[in-house]
């Protein structure tokens, strides 16, 4: 038990340690006074906290809504609507994330909530699409034999369709995380903070050290989340 827990946490702990090493190094070895003022433990922690909140809130919302709507659209009665939505989603995915933020900024305004909402909408797309596709692609023969053995539509959904679609849904969530972590760094443009703030400050002061600190911490966050979800998936899906 302790051994498996250790294996689970080994990579995340290593990555967190890397993040701490980077932060401590940059705070203690500033190249000049500008860097020293921008990079303090307080500013890094504040940006990281804001960044995590942006990601977590928007991701959890996107997973809940994306999976539920995906399931709904996969029901036989809504199937054709589902196909339509799938196309709209595919088009929506091609809009650049900066454009989405700009769009929301002009419509709703500035701040954390707007950024969360924009990230949420943007991350829903791959999750919704994959949930729909995952359920629709469960072979007919499997659904029919379940039906023929007397399973109700709800039991078929929970015992057959969702478990079989699970790997595809998880793939959608991982895509969403990658998109989310990139887009979250842009939230600073509508005054929502996050690690993007460090990057933007670094860029405007032309100090690479600040940019690299912000960017590497954002990347590490994404890798840790992706790794954890991958572990959950491997734990659940034993049948492939």
């Amino acid at each position: 038990m302790a051994k498996t827990l250790f294996r689970w946490l080994f990579v995340p702990l290593l990555l967190i340690a890397a993040g701490i090493v980077i932060s401590v190094y940059t705070v203690n070895n500033p190249t000049d006074s500008l860097v020293a003022r921008a990079l303090t433990y307080d500013s890094i922690l504040k940006s990281l906290r804001e960044h995590l909140w942006l990601m977590l809130v928007s991701m959890i919302g996107a997973i809940v809504v994306g999976v539920l709507v995906g399931i709904m659209l996969s029901r036989p009665k809504l199937y054709y609507l589902g196909r339509g939505v799938e196309n709209v989603v595919n088009v929506g995915q091609t809009i650049p994330s900066l454009a989405i933020l700009a769009l929301f900024f002009t419509i709703i305004g500035l701040g954390f909530r707007v950024a969360v909402f924009a990230l949420f909408l943007y991350s829903i797309l791959p999750i919704l699409r994959n949930t729909f596709a995952g359920i629709i692609n469960v072979p007919d023969s499997i659904i029919e034999s379940a039906r023929g053995m007397g399973m109700s539509p709800f039991r078929i959904l929970t015992l057959i369709e969702l478990p079989l679609a699970f790997p595809i849904i998880v793939a959608g969530i991982r895509t969403a995380i990658v998109i989310n972590v990139g887009a979250a760094t842009l939230a600073t443009f509508i005054a929502a903070g996050g690690l993007g703030e460090l990057i933007v400050i670094g860029l405007s002061l032309r100090r690479d050290m600040i940019v690299l600190t912000g960017a590497s911490l954002a990347a590490l966050t994404a890798i840790i989340l992706d790794y954890l979800i991958g572990q959950v998936e491997a734990k659940v899906v034993k049948w492939v």
């Binding site: 499997i142 029919e144 034999s145 023929g148 053995m149 007397g150 109700s152 079989l164 049948w239």
Partner: peptide, 21 residues
Amino acid sequence: PIKLRLDIGYVIQEIGLFPHM
């Protein structure tokens, strides 16, 4: 229909075994 099917054994062409079970 659900009660009816519970009392009728059913084997189809592609067997339809649940791959995740």
